[in-house]
Design a protein around this nucleic acid. Sequence first.
DNA 1: GATATGCCGTACCGTACGTTACGGTTCGGC
DNA 2: GCCGAACCGTAACGTACGGTACGGCATATC
Lengths: 217, 217
Amino acid sequence: MLHSVPEIDTSEALTERQKAVLDAALRLLVEEGDQLTMTAVARRASCSKETLYKWFGDRDGLLTATVQWQASKVRVAPVDGKGLDLASLTASLERFASDWLKVISSDTSIALNRVAISHAGSGKDNLGAVVLENGRFALAKRLKPVLEAGRRTGLLDFADAETAFRTFFGLVARDVQIRLLLGDRLELTEAAIGGDAARATQQFLALHGAKTGPQGL
Amino acid sequence: MLHSVPEIDTSEALTERQKAVLDAALRLLVEEGDQLTMTAVARRASCSKETLYKWFGDRDGLLTATVQWQASKVRVAPVDGKGLDLASLTASLERFASDWLKVISSDTSIALNRVAISHAGSGKDNLGAVVLENGRFALAKRLKPVLEAGRRTGLLDFADAETAFRTFFGLVARDVQIRLLLGDRLELTEAAIGGDAARATQQFLALHGAKTGPQGL
DNA sequence: GATATGCCGTACCGTACGTTACGGTTCGGC
DNA sequence: GCCGAACCGTAACGTACGGTACGGCATATC
């Protein structure tokens, strides 16, 4: 478990200029891959290296700030679990699945995960923790209330929300993320994502939907 | 899709000494993470840097050779699809699931995937291709015959073997690999892996097992 | 025994990059 | 108009590392 980054404080009081610098770093990260040198960021952001070091401490600080800055922008409006019927539950799940597939297949996510994974290999794991906290765990935090509402309503049947979430996660993501991270060309069109989201949702309902019709004799 | 590495030729005619050097590189990669410098490999393998360059060309060559060397060691005996009944099919699937979980949670796999992902971020994607070809795609190549045998025998029901495989893959792996790659401590005990493999297999059978009993009225 | 081959150990080179330092410029406050 | 703070642009420093060169040793071949 990762508890080192319980809550990302986006209240870091970033000035507009600093946000612009981080945006530049982010663009550079996505476009150039690993060529995220301090010189390159300074040039791209039209600022001096001295300023980068004053604001962010060192390269790690800049990297962390960049990842957190992107994370702070990804916050998605949570879904309310009110007035739940099968149709709205299905729609919610499909929405989550579709959103998640769009996120993990985006250039930004791929670049961010790559740099965080590289970073995790070398001692300090803070970047990985940030990415995980704002990706997988944030998704779980938003989806679990929906699952539990579905269970209360009798639409879903599962013992543990965490386990149920992980099943849904697996059905949605499958091998997409690892293939993209490893450089596999795997272009997901809007239509393909929609189809995958619907399929994953139906499979999840088949596994955890409450048995309503006649069954097993 | 990745077609640049259709077949890994392990017939590279490695001498015993070269294998020992690659083993040293592999150990270093696993233990030290990203500190896989040419100097460190030479010291660990008790060989000269000049020899490394003569044998493997450059750093990329050494990395590629190391990854392929590890890949050549991972080959698992395929499962035959003869005399298939539900029990043996279930056992086969559980075995695949368990093996796969063991692989992706091993230090070696994590280190290898990390270096390949870092590499994929910087232009050349050969490492990622090798890892994918010997990981995900090799698994698919071994599992699909089993799935198709199950379908022929009437035990399984699915339209596309590739899609069915990806469903199984998702049910087995879920969020394990990305969490480990991002540095999340997530120790899978032997027992936990066994339980996960059984759960994933049952879920897969629930989705794609041929309907035998009375159903839907 | 002489010569050749292959490899170890190590010193060395060039470069890339993180980090620091500094002169010049802009800008808000008095 | 003047001051100081913040910042830009760039030069410079230190180091790490990929890659090369070379002397020495051990084994093989004749």
